[in-house]
Design a protein around this nucleic acid. Sequence first.
RNA 1: GUGGGUGUAGCUCAGUUGGUGGUAGCACCUGGUUGUGGCCCAGGAGGUCGUGGGUUCAAGUCCCAUCAUUCACCCCA
Length: 423
Amino acid sequence: MKISALNGFKDILPGEVELWQHVESVARDIFSRFHFSEIRMPILEKTDLFARSIGEATDIVEKEMYTFVDKQITMRPEATASLLRAYIQHGLHVQKPVQRLFTIGPMFRHERPQKGRLRQFHQLDVEVLGAASPRVDAELLGLASMLLAELGVTVSLEVNSLGCPACRPAFRETLLQFIEERKEQLCDDCKRRSTTNPLRVLDCKNPKCREQVEEAPSILEHLCEECDTHFAAVQKNLQQLNVQYRLNKFMVRGLDYYCRTTFEFITKDLGSQSAVCAGGRYDGLVEQLGGPKKVPGIGFAMGIERLVLLLQQQEQEQAPEKGIDIFVVGLGEKASDFSFPLVHALRQNSIVAAMDHEGRSLKSQMKQANKAGAGWALILGEDELEKGVAMFRNMATKEQNEIAIVNDNNELLNILIEQITTG
RNA sequence: GUGGGUGUAGCUCAGUUGGUGGUAGCACCUGGUUGUGGCCCAGGAGGUCGUGGGUUCAAGUCCCAUCAUUCACCCCA
């Protein structure tokens, strides 16, 4: 019986992996321009960490985590909780009042897989800890949109404010009252949501619910003074950076820890999944996890699978596979025995070199050279060895000439390196 | 957790009202005057038709179950 990967788990094969490398290298470049530092955390954490940060009642914690029940440990379903755990554990707030951190890696959620959603998926995660200024909110959104723009994906940005513990409870009551009045018109899911997570009724996909919710009270009109001032400043700062956005008073978050500014970069090109990047502020979370008091935080996560899907779909130019510098063709045992250490020496000199080990024909080896995108071929056969020469062929121009193999192999090596590096 | 679609070569797929598995395309291998790549041509290799039952003289084809996969709901990056 053939063994295949688990449902919702995917191999990233040569051909696609180059796209991933591209995404990661563009991301790293931009992170460094914004002066962010990389941090890497373990994949396993105590289950309690996620229950306390993401929220006991969320679907993620309730039924989607990969947990070793007997050991009370869980494979991380997102990065923020682990990152804050590391921040607190190592006292990073003491080293620098403001920490700007990013991490890249796999996350695990036991959801039913579908387009743009896997059980092991990968995120680029960016967090700023210790900065309360609305400028940081805008700066982060500027970073995200710069990254998406440089990758060449077309998405739109929606922003909202969720208020804070001072103003959200009152809004929640107002909203609940509104929902109660129209409960009969809402879908079954929304009836359930009205008790579990009323804010979620606001972003239901059902057209009938949308219609009902159209008139719903807006959080933006119920913000306390501080939240209102903060959100106004975020918007002003976004305009300064010329970041295009749309206010969406119906946007909410799935994780409990968010407050104030929240945002999503969305697209219609991913089937039912719309968010490519999402995040927001979480000012109380560090303290809630047992860290220092009053450390504000804000961050976002980008789904790499979703970025890659968009890149493939929006038909970005495929990076052509990198060709090798030289293919050394050896005909016969003697020639192969001569080529073997030569190829190794070329590699020691930073030349990308390959050879055949299967004793195939000249024609076959030339085909391999061509397929590998070799710039040059060095052909060594019985005749050449007898004459003490090797044929050096330019694969593009088909020009070839003899190079003498003298006693000292270094001479041949130096000629090859010289030719290859100068083109 | 719920609902729909699809399972035939490594990949993309044909396969008629049930009647011997495809000269199919891509990829792979070997050749096309003894040792020179891309194009072209010829040949070759590659399959328990997802699996297990059932109906039938006969099942890739019809029925049931099961597994896998995919899309959507839920939820979410």
